[in-house]
């Protein structure tokens, strides 16, 4: 029997978090501070979409090559120093997760991988998930991302190994009295601006659409007396025919808008 009888068996309506012995906590802290050896990694998928697994395997390809840090994927938890949990911890995966956890020798580092592992991610409010690894185990490193790209993964491990520092910090910001939201392109009438933005989004999506309409309106705002001179110069300067096309359409839209304003 791999698992103790008390742990298995009954279904849980409330998750019993696995608590660690004090000596193990100390050993783990010491290990996290100073890992002077190659670390072996065991990966448990606890009900994600498998995107995270695919990214873990792209991380061990020659391009990203995690083995240069001595990180090696092992097929058995018995050899593992790091347990990587992906997925939002479904009810059915609770027991296999515990089983793998108990299989690994102490002290072991637990990594929550992906948005699912960190907080439950896109599945966080699903009826059959516990919503994140940390509801079951003490987690040492959280690697967010859906899925985390290989550099993101390497950053997470490099941070755990002490190669890089943590960047993200808990932030709390309070509004300063008198703070004002800037109006974009204040010199362009609101209706004209929104019409241009809408048109650009319709043509090339919210991201490039916005970039293009911003370029267009910057040229327009700088235009001075001859409104169209700056715009024509901008269109002429483009080497991407798609951009040319969209900017041309925006110019047509601007003409329509100006005509309707004059009426």
């Amino acid at each position: 029997m791999l698992i103790d009888r008390e742990v298995s068996g009954q279904l849980q309506h409330k998750l019993d978090k696995i608590t660690l012995d004090e000596s193990i906590v100390k050993a783990k802290a010491a290990l996290l501070n100073d890992i002077k050896r190659s670390i072996y990694l065991y990966r448990v998928d606890c009900g994600g979409c498998n995107g995270c697994e695919i990214e873990i395997f792209s991380t061990i390809t020659p391009i990203y090559d995690t083995e240069r840090f001595g990180i090696k994927n092992t097929p058995s938890p018995r050899h593992a120093d790091i347990m990587v949990y992906t997925g939002s911890m479904t009810r059915l995966m609770r027991l296999p997760a515990i089983r793998a956890y108990q299989g690994a020798p102490d002290p072991k580092i637990v990594v929550s991988y992906g948005s699912c592992g960190c907080t439950g991610g896109i599945f966080h409010d699903n009826y059959c998930v516990w919503g994140g690894t940390d509801n079951l185990f003490d987690v040492d490193v959280y690697i967010p991302g859906c899925p985390p790209s290989p550099p993101q993964t390497i950053y997470g491990f490099a941070m755990a190994l002490g190669l890089l520092g943590q960047k993200l910090k808990h932030t709390e910001i309070t509004e300063v009295p008198g703070e004002q939201v800037p109006i974009r392109f204040e010199t362009i009438p609101y209706k004209v601006r929104t019409a241009l933005e809408r048109k650009a989004r319709l043509l090339s999506g919210y991201r490039s659409g916005k970039d293009l309409s911003d370029e267009f309106m910057t040229a327009l705002a700088l235009g001075g007396t001859d409104v169209f001179a700056g715009i024509d110069a901008l269109i002429a300067a483009q080497d991407d025919p798609r951009k040319k096309e969209v900017l041309g359409e925006l110019k047509a839209e601007l003409k329509t808008q100006l005509a309707s304003q004059e009426l």
Partner: peptide, 10 residues
């Protein structure tokens, strides 16, 4: 992309 943290509050 460097978003990994050691504490959840971060």
């Amino acid at each position: 992309f460097e978003l990994a943290v050691m504490k959840k509050e971060d």
